[in-house]
Every structure is written in structure tokens, then in C-alpha cells.
Design a protein around this nucleic acid. Sequence first.
DNA 1: CCGGCTGGTGGTATCGTTTCCATGGATGCC
DNA 2: GGCATCCATGGAAACGATACCACCAGCCGG
Lengths: 401, 401
Amino acid sequence: MRTTARQRGDGTGNTIIEITMEPSDSLAAMTRRKSTPPTLSEVARRAGVGTTTVSRVINGGHRVSPETLERVQGAIEALGYVPNQAARILKGYRTRTVGLIIPSIADPFFSECAEAIQAVARANDSLLIVTTTQNDPRAEIDNINVLMEHRADGLIIAPANSNSQMLRQVVSTLGVPVVAIDRPIAQSAVLAVVANNFRGAALATQHLIDHGYKRILCLTGESTLYTIRERIMGYSRTMEAAGLEVLLDTSVKDYRSAEHAIESFLSAGDSPAAIFTLKNSTTIYVFESLQKFNVAIPGSVALLGYDDFELASTVRPSISVVEQPIEEIARVAAEALFGDLLEDRSTGRRSSKPGQMTLDVRLVPRSSCGCSPRRPEAAGTDAVWNGDKRDGLKGRGGRRS
Amino acid sequence: MRTTARQRGDGTGNTIIEITMEPSDSLAAMTRRKSTPPTLSEVARRAGVGTTTVSRVINGGHRVSPETLERVQGAIEALGYVPNQAARILKGYRTRTVGLIIPSIADPFFSECAEAIQAVARANDSLLIVTTTQNDPRAEIDNINVLMEHRADGLIIAPANSNSQMLRQVVSTLGVPVVAIDRPIAQSAVLAVVANNFRGAALATQHLIDHGYKRILCLTGESTLYTIRERIMGYSRTMEAAGLEVLLDTSVKDYRSAEHAIESFLSAGDSPAAIFTLKNSTTIYVFESLQKFNVAIPGSVALLGYDDFELASTVRPSISVVEQPIEEIARVAAEALFGDLLEDRSTGRRSSKPGQMTLDVRLVPRSSCGCSPRRPEAAGTDAVWNGDKRDGLKGRGGRRS
DNA sequence: CCGGCTGGTGGTATCGTTTCCATGGATGCC
DNA sequence: GGCATCCATGGAAACGATACCACCAGCCGG
């Protein structure tokens, strides 16, 4: 209790600022913390009331007389009492915890998702627990188990593999609402909130066709992922519809393979031609390689990428891309989940509405496809044609299919 | 239990819409899930054993006869039993949960931290709960409370404000080990794992001086953050030591202010000159603005940034930067925390070793400062002078101060 | 042949909180 | 003035898993 009050000068008019700054305050902490944190009954004893009353104070303080309330709050303060969630959860049937399972936290796409979902969770005063799978289906199942052990009220999953039979089965017997993001869980009843990958690729391809390009090469380093497969379809169908040749290479996974693909593409036909890349990393490899070969962009080869990223708007020439409504996907999924949880409470139903929400993507034309973008500072008023993503309008509703 | 009852047109049954949406396997789930998950005693009853035996099976199955073991495991499987962590935690003393409090999940620096810390947590089979503050000190305290309610075994915090009195006091009475990353908690006993910001800036400044530049402008949009202050010191001291004029502008927070700062810098003296930026975002603003003004880099103005990022190695010219050992900071902090937790168990001590681990940074010279980098594919053997970050050697030990 | 041991098992108190029920006083209504 | 309310409050039974202790076989060495 020795607060080491330092009174200099006249003693009254000073700053009482750092009264508790003393390192010796830990002795207070020491006496306070035997070894285990204070419990509700200790608070009750100190305040001279029953445990029920303390419980009521913690949960809003209704039906407690003002003086009792104050006394209990004093005891809570003095003891540094913090309610034990484990005990709370054990009693009630909601844990106010939801789980998010994603391939990686370091991936900008998913970290933006996590941020948005966390915001929704907080608004529903729930805790979000994020776990990562590194796209390993076994880790995914493990993560589901961990979250079930913690009795998460619901789960949001970006499936490592859309077709995993294992995942489908596990999810179907979970007993809590599940929502999938970015990629659906095939043949299952769980709601999936995804971007319209097919349309994104179709938009991009058509845009290049409208620019007059006949030879349009589609590059990616991946062809098993649901999103990529959809994009490949969007590209292929559009090319076919225009009577153009489908030129697809799914082996571009590093600089070397990018250079190789570009070399054979350039030597096989005339300029101008265009390249449509389906992934951030592929876009970077291709852009770099084109620069290395001194190929004029878009003069000799136009370039259009998928998924917006900081780099795309900063490099010269700036890269046109298809932008996904990442934050919207996450938010819509989280809101659907919490909607379910509320409904669940009243009706007793336990599984999410089936179906799929497909959210629209938009084309962000910049220099690399032949369009001339505005300067980043010049905030455009037209959401679709604005070259800078930072003030793009989101929040358009998706459609239900 | 035969649901699938589709009653259409009888006049009343209008909106029982999708009750029977489930394919068929969910009927197993239906019978299984009354409404609440199965408990250990239900498993015991079904297996015809006591609860103790089931508990033993769950925790490794020692001292259980093979046939009993099999029977219990069968019951667990059949019921889809998952242990309830809340009950476990309530009983035991460790929760196997640690908290990470960071400004933002979407910030690449912190998402990389989170990824690395999660890996260490997993290795110590603990769960990591990540919460974000958006650099709001109030949210920070809230987050600490939430994590304490969940009885986290320990906390890793990237403080919103290194000098927060509130934070210092709260942390000192927590009763669990705390480790700070990226920024220390001033005047407190908690271990801080940080990068050597002073030396990073000094290295960068000296490098520019060695290139022969006399006019070196230091730009940032922030000057209150601990890391930035340290960097400013590193720059200033080095300039002073070389007898050069300190040129500092801390107001570059967007493209407009970047352009303004550059214009006055260019009109105030002769080329060649150099610019040293202290933050990613500032680097981007400055790079863009220089491009807009058609200023040759590094011909007329050299550029050197802080903190490596994908963009820096991709743009032309590639940007030289000071690289921080992000993953190492996170890993070292996490290992220190778990080391503490283990030690804690045996000795009963509760607070982390005080002090500071300062990890070395390294200079990554690329084109923008006048060095000529190698191609990304050409993996260098010299860690310090290798232009590409992807195969840089990390893991050098830090020093204790 | 018997005390101590060990391997397999079950009963039950306990963790900290919520919640149902009970109590006792003070009204309010007819 | 009796009785139904209502408010403030406390007692005690859950919630699900763990761990201490007890118990019962066998079994071995003295």
C-alpha cells in the first residue's frame, strides 16, 4: 500500500501523474496473486455478499441495489478480478467464439479476410480464433477438431481442397453452422461465399479482345484450385465464343518458367499480343520477365492480371487487373454466420442455409492493357473505371444462385 | 426419424421449406446430436466403463487394458465425442493458449509475425489467439482483458504506444509472462524483442554517404512511433558524424506531401542527391512522385527505403532497402515466452526476464541507390550483399542489452 | 503363507460460473 | 388486514473433465 507519493514544491499544485509508476508496486501484485487468479467467490466474500449477487453485477448489474453494486465493484477492482471464461462457457451453451480456418495468415488475401471477419465478430461480441492449414487437408481436419474442442459457435473455412470428401463428411456432422469462403465445399450443404471467378476472367478476356488482341495467352502456375479452374473456364469460354484460339499454360510457377513461356509465345506469332495471368505471383513473374526481355508493355505485349495488389498500381507501366471484393466476401460470410447463430438460438436449427453467394468482381484498367489510367491522386468518381483501388466503392450486393 | 416429408398444396404447409435439404448421411448426425455434444460420461456409459477410464484413454491410454481401450475408442468414434476444452481448462492450471496483440492483421509485417508465432505455438501444442488494436490504446487494454478472461498462459504484444503508462501498469499486474515485439514497453520489466532500428538507419545513411552523396533527405509520415524515432536518430547521428546537414521531413503521409517535399528538395540544391525513406508507404509515395517528375533514379536522386517488401524488388529500378528479420523477431519472442512458461511451471516465477533483445538488420542494396543488383534467379552466396530476400540467411543471433 | 506391490478400474470431490429456487421484507390492491 | 407481487439477495445444483483415493486381483520374495 506504500504508494511512494512524491510531493515536490508546495505539495498541492503538481501532477499526480505517475503515482503508481513505481517498480515496487509489484509487491502489491505479489501479495494479491497467491498463484491463482481471484475467483468470483473471493470477490463475494470480500464484498460480504453471495456469489449470485456478484454474478449479477458482472452481467450488467440489474436487480442489484446501488450500494451493493458499488461495494461489489469495489471488491472486483481491489482484487483485480477477471471472470473465468472457461467456467462461463462450461455453464452456458454459447461460447461466443468463432473459428476461421485459412491456408495462411501471411497471404494478403486471407489476412484481409481475417481482419474483416474479426470486425464482424467483435461487433457481435465474439472472439475470433484464426488457424492456418498451409493448404494441407490433414491440418485442416486437425484445426476443425481444435476449434470444436473449444466449442466454437460456428466456423468459417477457406477449404484447402474444394473436393475433399473427408472435409465434406466432417463438416456435415459438426453440429455447428459452417460457411465457406473463396472456395465452396463441393456437394455439401454449406453456404459458400465466393467471388465470380468465371465472370472475372471472362471480363478480362473480353476486355483484351475489345482492345483488338487476337493472340491472348493465359498463364498460371496452378490448375487444381477451384478459383483458378473457374478462371480458366471463363477465359476459355470467352475465347471460344470470339472464335479465337485458346492458349493456356499452367506451368508458370517461377521466373524461369515464366521466361520460357514468354519466349515460346513471342517466337510463335506476331505482335501485338496479350497475356492474361490468373494469380498475383504469376503476374509478377511475367511482368519481370517481360521487362528483362525489353518487351514493350503494352506496345508489344499487353498484360492483364488477376487480383489487385499494391504492386500493380505502382509499377511502370501500371498493371490492369481484375479486382476481387475481398472485404465484402469476408463480411458477407461472417454476417451470414452470425445471422445463423442468432436464428439458431430461436429455432434450434443447426446448419447454415445451403447455397452459394457469388459476388461480383470488377475490372481495374490501368496502363498495361492499353488503357490510360488516371493518376492515383485524381480520385475518380466512376467506381468501375477508377484506376486506384483505395477509394473504390464496394458494398454492392451479390446475387444468390 | 424418416424426415423428407414434403407436403405441398395442402393449404397450410407453406414455408417448411428446406427442412429436408440434407442428402442422407445427416440422419446419422441427427440421431447422434440431440442438441448438445456428447460428454465424457456418455462415452463411459456406452462403453460400459467409468469416466476415469475414458479420461485415461483420451490422455494417451496408459494403464488401460487393450480390450477396454478398443471399446472406449469405439464409443468415442461412434458418438463423435470431442473433449470439452472449457471443462479441461477449468480443472487444470495451464490453458495452453497464448495471446498475440498487434495493431493490424492486414499489415504484412504483423501478419508475418503472426504466422511465425503460430508455428511456435503449434510446436508447443498451444493455441494462438490473435487480436488487433488498430493502434488504439483503449482497444489494447480491452484485448488484454479478453485474453485474461480466457486465461491465456502468456501474451505477446506489439504495443500501440511504447510510452503508455496505462499499458505499463496493466502489464505489471497481469500475473502471466508478457513479451513485447517490435516496440518495447518503456520503463517496464517486460522482455522486448526488437530490430536494431538505430543501426538500420545508420547503415543505410552511411551507405549513401559511401556512395558519395552529400545531400541526403530523410522522409517519413510519422515521428511518434518508437521504431521511427530510433531510425531518425540513426540517420541524424550518422549525418552529424560525417559533418553533413540533417535534412528531415516527417510530414510525408501521402502522394501530395511527397511531391511537395521532393519539389522543394530538388529546387534547393544540386544533383546528385539522395532520399532515405523510413516506412514502406513513404517509400512508395516518394518512388511514384520521382517517376512522375521524370527524375532519374539513381542518376539524379538515389533512393533507399526501410523494410523489404515485394514491390521493392520488382519495380524498375529496384529499390534498395533495410531489411528487418521479421520472422526471427517473432520466433525469438515466441520461444522466449514458451521458455518462460516451462520455467514458470517448475520454479513458480511468473514474469518474463527483463531486458531487450535487439536483432540485427541488414542492408539489401539494389539499383535505386547506385548499386547494381543481381538477377533474382542468381542466388548470391553472400548473405549481406545478396540483392534478393528470398534466400537471405537469417538465424543470426541477436545480442542482449 | 502372508505383506507389499503393481496393473486395471471406478467413485467422487473439485474447478468457477450460472441459474433455479427459496427467503424475507416491503409494498399495493380490494 | 390478508394476500398476491415485487425486489434484493443467498443457497445449492449443475456444467464436463481431472485426479486423488480406494478397491480388487494376482504375484513375488521372505
